[in-house]
């Protein structure tokens, strides 16, 4: 039984790596590769879309195309997300310029691949996902959300809308929820890590702003650090719980469960070190 499970895990890992290699090849452009780094490929999201596509029983001929194009869109969004506001010295300008074009190029590739297989449904589905992601990115970034609940919901959408759109079309909302919770946990943990390291965090900036407005008194981040962390931990725990409630309804969960176990250990570690550091 264990040998079977291991073999299956091994197969899934190999497939994951193969898909990653395809993405690396697709996104390579000779001049861009000389000036900017190869794009970041979020392996968790790659695993997730693989898991979704397998659960939706999409025909093999389309399955890999769906995984590749969804990831190209994700890579495009992540690439554009890395464009900062700060003015750059002349020698670094070219890098920013190419980063912008790279993101657009990856979007173009997603469209091209799906156009070649005449899949107008998926073109529309991913386009709707991109729109939704950007709607929520603007809301989170511009501090437009007025409650913690709506802020967290928006943050979740920035990470999950692409997956939501696909699963909803196939009437598998529970699969979408599962995916949304997973990417949300990942994002909150990342924001928390940034915050604790004293680096800028979009989530914690927005949370601080919310508290400042609610309390109508100057908000000192230092004093309230613990309450902000507490809010985030609460949302993470809730999401873990929701995942546990719905995971049994899904198939092909082996790799997914492994990932979950690892994420939980990360969360525990973070809590531990936060408590120890006071």
């Amino acid at each position: 039984m264990n040998a079977n499970k291991n073999a299956k895990l091994q197969d899934m890992n190999t497939r994951l790596m193969n898909l990653k290699e395809v993405l690396q090849k697709k996104t390579r452009q000779p001049y861009m590769s000389k000036i900017i780094q190869q794009p970041y490929i979020d392996e968790d999201k790659l695993l997730l879309i693989m898991f979704i596509v397998d659960n939706l029983q999409i025909p093999k001929s389309k399955a890999d195309k769906y995984i590749i194009t969804t990831m190209l869109v994700q890579i495009a969004l992540d690439t554009h997300e890395s464009v900062q506001n700060e003015p750059l010295p002349l020698e670094r300008l070219k890098g920013r310029q190419l980063t912008i074009l790279a993101g657009t190029y990856y979007s173009g590739l997603y469209y091209q691949i799906l156009a070649e297989i005449d899949d107008i449904f998926m073109i529309r589905t991913l386009a709707e996902g991109i729109m939704e992601v950007n709607e929520h990115k603007v809301s989170v970034y511009s501090h437009a959300r007025v409650t913690v609940e709506s802020l967290m919901e928006s943050l979740k959408k920035t990470e999950s809308s692409l997956f939501d759109r696909i699963t909803h079309f196939y009437n598998r909302g529970e699969l979408g929820e599962l995916a949304a919770n997973l990417v949300f946990i990942n994002r909150v943990l990342l924001e928390k890590k940034q915050f604790l390291a004293g680096k800028p965090s979009i989530l914690f900036d927005a949370l601080s702003k919310l508290f400042e407005t609610e309390q109508s008194v100057p908000f000192t981040l230092h004093n309230n650090k613990q309450s902000l962390i507490h809010i985030c931990d609460k949302y993470v725990s809730l999401s873990f719980k929701e995942i546990e409630q719905s995971i049994d309804k899904c198939e092909h969960t082996e790799l997914f469960r492994e990932k979950l176990k690892w994420m939980k250990s990360q969360q525990q570690e973070a809590v531990q070190s936060f408590v120890e550091e006071g």
């Binding site: 495009a76 969004l77 554009h80 993101g103 657009t104 386009a127 709707e128 996902g129 729109m131 950007n134």
Partner: peptide, 27 residues
């Protein structure tokens, strides 16, 4: 950042609108 989000949003809108044309060659 707002410019990047806006550009991406408008680009996706464009594809969404064109998806009303059910002719693969157009895409």
């Amino acid at each position: 950042r707002i410019a990047m989000y806006t550009g991406d949003y408008i680009f996706a809108r464009a594809l969404d609108v064109l998806s009303n044309i059910n002719k693969p060659i157009a895409h």
